[in-house]
Design a binder for these strands. Structure first.
Lengths: 256, 256
DNA sequence: TCAATAGTGTCTTTGAGACAGTATGTC
DNA sequence: GACATACTGTCTCAAAGACACTATTGA
């Protein structure tokens, strides 16, 4: 680090949250309507500034998660940093974006202060001619968060974070289908998920149908990294309508 | 974002660089000796504070890359943010860590101001009973950076960033062996690398042996994502001596 | 009975890993 | 010639994808 007599500039640090969940088999993100300038009235990702000098970044993210979404004990990981000068008209604001995964149906948000928060289908925001415009660079942050979720579904047990404590295999399949925007063969999915060692483990001989044969219940297994992985078939032909995979540049790295 | 009448705290923003390269078939990282407090005399990752209010984060990383390592036009990507309160005794310093990959043999650093910079074998720093102690939380940053490189080698063409503009297949194999800390079968590696569509393309019928049969030269192909991927054999039995894979927690995400 | 979903089996293709064998250079 | 490295072929096994088939529920 350079340590001269000169004073380095300081910045405002914020956290922003990409909170994803599944609602009626579609991927949704939690948005809030901004009540103040800038971007008053526009939708934005939940987030806020550090509370005080001594607050850790993840602590701030969890605080916002509780304050704005009423969520606790959910999967949370850092996505990256967004700090382009000029991204916020108020000055130099650097935002640390986080990805949170909420299990489905935690109600449209309990009675939190975030009265204006609402779950929005991700495609409505990310699709080329999007209905919903987001404040700041939040559309890009959302795109990166979704891409992160897609990738982690392949190699980790993240999908179980979308489910309740116990779940059926077809519920798990819905997660993959919604996040990837593809349709999968139930029979092959069944085998594949079972053959990934430690991914899911049986949770009682229980059952709970609606129509059709009752299904076994499972819970998340011990492993974090999947082997064999749940590879997304690269050879196309599976994309389902509204696939939001287009028009997003997921990776920022450049080669020489 | 919360927008009250209260003033949010500001922080100092720094960039730190994990610059990796290959030297005599081993993975090395560039370290600098700190000339001032804190941690005077200790080794640290190259890095520094933002220069001014208007400097972008990636721009700052590239500036440090040039100033401290004399490198330009190399692969650069963000690793993550390290901002625990108390990580820097000077106050609240939030560091954005980056991973840079330098092609091998750019000389032990040209005549830059970083006279004290030196390439250090990664294992010497990361191994359990490490010889080299790093300042701040830089050991953890290095571990995360190495883990990032390991993972990206599987699914992207990042390995070519370690090589010169043209390279032989066995040179590419050395990259994988050094970064993963494993030994690979040359025959299978040959086939595998060739079957990954768009990974490498022939670069002239050239050749350049030292002993043994001359090898064909290749250059980096057009694709970024590898298919099929170069999967690290999960079933162990391949780790080579000094494997630094142990004792590192690469992932910070937690499930509910 | 049918509709609907759960779960099993089987076949084909692709790729991973082991390793024999051939090609082409230097000494 | 020996030696070293580059490259090819072949075998076996594991897993992906396609899809026929059976099982178990409710209506």
């Amino acid at each position: 680090m350079t340590d001269d007599r000169w004073e380095p500039p300081s910045v405002l640090l914020a956290v922003d949250l990409v909170i994803l969940t599944l609602r009626d088999a579609r991927l949704h993100v939690l948005l809030v309507e901004r009540g103040v300038e800038p971007y008053q009235g526009a939708f934005a990702l939940p987030g806020g500034f550090l509370h005080d000098e001594d607050e850790g970044i993840e602590a701030a993210a969890r605080r916002e998660l509780a304050e704005e979404a009423g969520l606790a004990d959910v999967h949370l990981e850092m996505i990256g940093v967004y700090g382009d000068p000029g991204r916020d008209p108020r000055g130099r604001v650097v935002s640390v974006a986080h990805l949170a995964i909420a299990p489905w149906l935690p109600d449209p948000i309990a009675g939190t202060d975030a009265a204006s928060a609402c779950w929005t289908p991700v495609e409505d925001v990310l699709f080329a001619s999007a209905y919903v415009q987001l404040a700041f660079d939040h559309r890009r942050i959302l795109a990166d968060g979704v891409e992160r979720a897609r990738t982690k579904l392949e190699h980790t047990s993240l999908a179980t974070a979308f489910c309740a404590k116990t779940f059926t295999i077809s519920e798990l399949q819905q997660v993959y289908e919604a996040v990837w925007g593809v349709r999968l063969d139930p029979r092959n999915f069944y085998r594949k998920v079972q053959s990934a060692r430690g991914f899911i483990v049986p949770a009682g001989p229980m059952r709970r149908p609606q129509s059709g044969r009752p299904a076994r219940l499972f819970k998340a297994g011990p492993v974090q990294a999947l082997y064999p992985p749940m590879v997304r078939s690269t050879q196309p032909g599976h994309e389902v309508l509204g696939g939001h995979a287009a028009g997003i540049a997921p990776e920022g790295g450049e080669h020489a």
